[in-house]
């Protein structure tokens, strides 16, 4: 029994056995549920992975277009336009709001870009030269920001899910490899102990029975002996009678 691995330290009684059995049922159910959760998360995870890879590929193209839009703006408006753009920075007009999505009990942070109200300072930049290109460049980069914020969202979900899946799997593994075997070991230990007790009881009963039989035998023997003695006595008496009869007459056989 001791070779069966780790078990809980318990008093092996029928009551405890019932408790442990209930716990095993609980652990098994928990294991199944967690396994399901893990599967759900993994599915979500895989979808996000697919979208990350797609979006990252798209990002390459979008950024390339944006970079070239800037080249076109610089060509039309002059290289110095960048200084004007840097001077015009005050408060961000594109910002990010975060919210949370719930997947199988895991809170996934999500980013959402939004544009703050108000005229941007660059509306008139390049007024006499290249203004149109600057606006085109601006929209190209706004598009890039939108994509990048979406990508950031996916990436954050990816990391959160990754973490959640690892935790869940750790629990699944713990239930599967530690908790459940431990409970099972405990159950078999208790069962073993109980069997042992039962066997001892049986042996004792047998012993008692054997004792009882011995006593009974002896009594029987005594009774038999006593009976034997009576029989002997009777036999002796009978012989006496026979000898007396024989002494009285030879024909006495005929009588019997």
């Amino acid at each position: 029994m001791s070779g069966g691995g780790a078990r809980l330290v318990v008093v092996p009684t029928v009551t405890v056995l019932a408790v442990i059995k209930a716990r095993l049922i609980g652990a098994t159910k928990g294991h199944q549920l967690l396994k399901k959760k893990s599967d759900a998360l993994t599915m979500q995870f895989r979808q996000i992975l697919k979208r990350i890879v797609e979006t990252k590929e798209m990002m390459g193209e979008t950024m390339k277009q944006a970079a070239f839009a800037l080249t076109e703006a610089k060509y039309a408006a002059g290289d110095n336009i960048k200084h004007t753009v840097f001077e015009n920075v005050s408060s961000a007009t594109i910002k990010v709001r975060s919210k949370q999505d719930n997947v199988a009990g895991v809170k996934l942070p999500k980013f959402q870009h939004y544009t703050e109200a108000g005229e941007t300072k660059n509306a008139l930049t390049g007024l006499a030269r290249g203004g149109q290109q600057i606006q085109l460049c601006k929209s190209a980069y706004v598009k890039a920001v939108e994509l990048l914020v979406e990508l950031a969202s996916l990436q954050t979900s990816f990391l959160t899910l990754d973490e959640a899946i690892k935790t869940t799997n750790r629990r699944v593994n713990a239930l599967e490899n530690v908790v459940k075997p431990k409970l099972e070991n405990t159950i078999s230990y208790i069962k073993g102990e109980l069997d042992e007790l039962e066997r001892e009881e049986f042996f004792r009963l047998k012993k008692v029975q054997a004792n009882k039989k011995k006593v009974a035998d002896r009594e029987l023997k005594e009774k038999l002996d006593a009976a034997g003695r009576v029989a002997d006595k009777l036999a002796a008496r009978a012989e006496e009678v026979v000898s007396m009869l024989t002494a009285n007459g030879k024909d006495e056989d005929v009588i019997f």
Binding site: A66, A67, A69, L70, I81, K82, V85, F86, N88, V89, S90, S91, A92, T93, I94, T115, T120, N122, I134, C137, K138, A140, Y141, V142, A144, V145
Partner: peptide, 16 residues
């Protein structure tokens, strides 16, 4: 790099 930041500033991401 400067160009990339110029583009994003133009989009309205910059903040001081």
């Amino acid at each position: 790099d400067e160009d990339t930041i110029t583009g994003f500033l133009l989009a309205g991401v910059g903040n001081v």
